[in-house]
Design a protein around this nucleic acid. Structure first.
Length: 489
RNA sequence: CGGGAUGUAGCGCAGCCCGGUAGCGCGCUUCGUUCGGGACGAAGAGGCCGCAGGUUCAAAUCCUGUCAUCCCGACCA
């Protein structure tokens, strides 16, 4: 049935690439590691953006925009931060081209060398905190709650569409607070926003937790994360929220005068999600027939396919349904392309992941009904035309809920708890997924386990289902609680 | 950056060993018949064989270099 999509069981990576390409989400570009996000893919990203942006605004944030370029010197102000990003920065060294004197097109004009190189932002903490110094003087200026939608560049060794591209789109929130407690509360709040977005809109269950020192954001005191599980039983870090302490305030000398007239460094957070979420969305729900988009993020929620014989009457019935659905706030497309046959359209819309398809033919009209096909289960049923508008909001909600439940069940089946290294390895090799295990809390052990098994500590869960103390699976040293391991993207 | 593979029509590929008029399927265009799960017939259009050098009377084919992409590792959202 599905044409040319590699089966998941056969080659998961290939399946993923097939979905991205065949569903028209993105393409490779002429630039290494950079992709073209095509209209079908961008429309989904816009839905994500729209919802996230609302949630940020609802929690008191405003949007702003900071430069793409960062003076090189800024990067060296926070020691850990440079360390983390230095190896993957694109650097601008010149500002002019000229005709090649040898006639071979165009070359960099050596006389146009920049005095200080500019870094294409891999993240904007430094340029933003350099700006915040001027914006913050008094406790009355706090909290400062700003978000920016932007592109960033990280020169990655190996890229994969959406999951890891050299340039990607994201949002980064950067906030400044008067107290440590307030900043931590902000960090946690935004983690909750991400988790809520992932679960309610993407229908992608996530585990909230804290990263270990090894996995922490460069320059953060604590990194919180939401971790999702993909269909190949590998974990995906889907969003992070960092408590930055006073590191950046100190590096960029950002202070405020408190109510009791003391000059103090401010406390910071930063948090972000990226187009990687698109990868997570694909790998959580889609199947061998193509993309599956949860109704809440589907640019088109319902497509109507006419099965033509007497076309005018079908158009009439379709128009009626379209009006009724639009009144309910449902996005509908009427596929009137006369050149394609119905069977082709069915497959096409399944490939693109439209949640519900309505089919109307002569047979249906005679019975006053339409055929309803849902993308998630492939089930088909018939429904009275007059009842469509009442039924569809519920159906879309059911599909949304079903996708979430399905992902939740999958995660439950692929979550284990082990007590020994042998068991740990066996579970990872047999079925993968999330594995809870005791760890002695040291970086050395974490690194060693990674070397031995390729599994990393995804997080120390906030609502830990395995909080009891025990012994580290590698060293036998005391462990306060089990932590969450997985092989990850 | 290491290991493997691949660049030939929009997409998927054959041709390359053994140099000699660039092919197949899908898609595209036109017309007709079709239309309840990826229709059929007929007629068309579409290529600097990734790029640059070299060998040769002659290169998609042989040689050198280079660029890009994909997969597997190390690094990361």
């Amino acid at each position: 049935m599905a044409k040319e999509i590699t089966n998941r069981s056969e080659d998961y990576s290939q399946w993923y690439n097939d979905i991205v390409k065949k569903a028209g989400l993105a393409d490779h570009s002429a630039v290494r590691g950079c992709m073209v996000i095509k209209p079908q893919g961008f429309a989904i990203w816009e839905k994500m953006q729209g919802q996230l942006d609302r949630m940020f605004k609802d929690t008191g944030h405003v949007n702003a925009y900071f430069p793409l370029f960062i003076p090189k010197s800024f990067l060296s102000k926070e020691a850990e931060h440079v360390e983390g990003f230095a190896k993957e920065c694109a650097v601008v060294t010149h500002h002019r081209l000229m005709n090649d004197p040898n006639g071979n097109g165009v070359v960099v004009d050596p006389s146009a060398r920049l005095e200080e190189e500019l870094i294409v932002r891999p993240t904007s903490e430094t340029i933003i905190w350099n700006t915040y110094r001027d914006w913050i003087n008094s406790y009355r200026d706090l909290p400062l709650l700003i978000n920016q939608w932007a592109n960033v560049v990280r020169w990655e060794m190996r890229t994969r569409m959406f999951l890891r591209t050299a340039e990607f789109l994201w949002q980064e929130g950067h906030t400044a607070h008067a107290t440590r407690g307030e900043a931590i509360a902000e960090t946690r709040q935004m983690l909750d926003v991400y988790a809520q977005f992932a679960e309610e809109y993407m229908a992608m269950p996530v585990i909230k937790g804290v990263k270990t020192a090894n996995e922490r954001f460069a320059g953060a005191e604590d990194t919180y994360t939401i971790e999702a599980l993909m269909q190949d039983a590998r974990a995906l870090q889907a969003g992070t929220s960092h408590f930055l302490g006073q590191n950046f305030a100190k590096a960029f000398d950002v202070t405020y005068l408190s109510e009791n007239q003391k000059r103090e460094h401010v406390w910071a957070t930063s948090w972000g999600v990226s187009t990687r979420l698109m990868g997570g969305l694909i790998m959580t729900h889609s199947d061998d027939d193509g993309l599956i988009v949860p109704p809440k993020l589907a640019p088109t929620q319902v497509v109507i396919v006419p099965i033509p014989k007497p076309e005018a009457t079908i158009d009439e019935a379709a128009e009626k349904i379209i009006r009724a659905l639009r009144d309910k706030g449902i996005t509908v497309k009427y596929d009137q392309d006369r050149k394609k046959r119905p069977g082709f359209k069915f497959a096409e819309h399944e490939l693109r992941g439209i949640p519900v398809r309505l089919g109307i033919g002569k047979r249906d009209l005679e019975k006053g009904q339409v055929e309803v096909a849902r993308r998630d289960t492939k089930e088909k049923s018939f429904l009275a035309i007059d009842g469509v508008a009442d039924y569809l909001p519920q159906l879309l909600a059911d599909i949304q809920a079903n996708l979430f439940q399905r992902a939740l069940d999958f995660r439950a089946e692929h979550t284990s708890s082990v007590d020994s290294m042998e068991e740990f390895k066996e579970v990872l090799d047999q079925k993968g997924g999330f594995v809870y295990a005791h760890w002695d809390g040291t970086s050395e052990t974490e690194v060693k386990i990674k070397e031995l098994t390729k599994a990393t500590i995804r997080c120390i869960p906030l609502d830990n289902p395995h909080p009891a103390p025990g012994k580290c699976i590698l060293t036998g040293a005391p462990s306060a609680q089990k932590v969450l391991f997985a092989r990850a993207y």
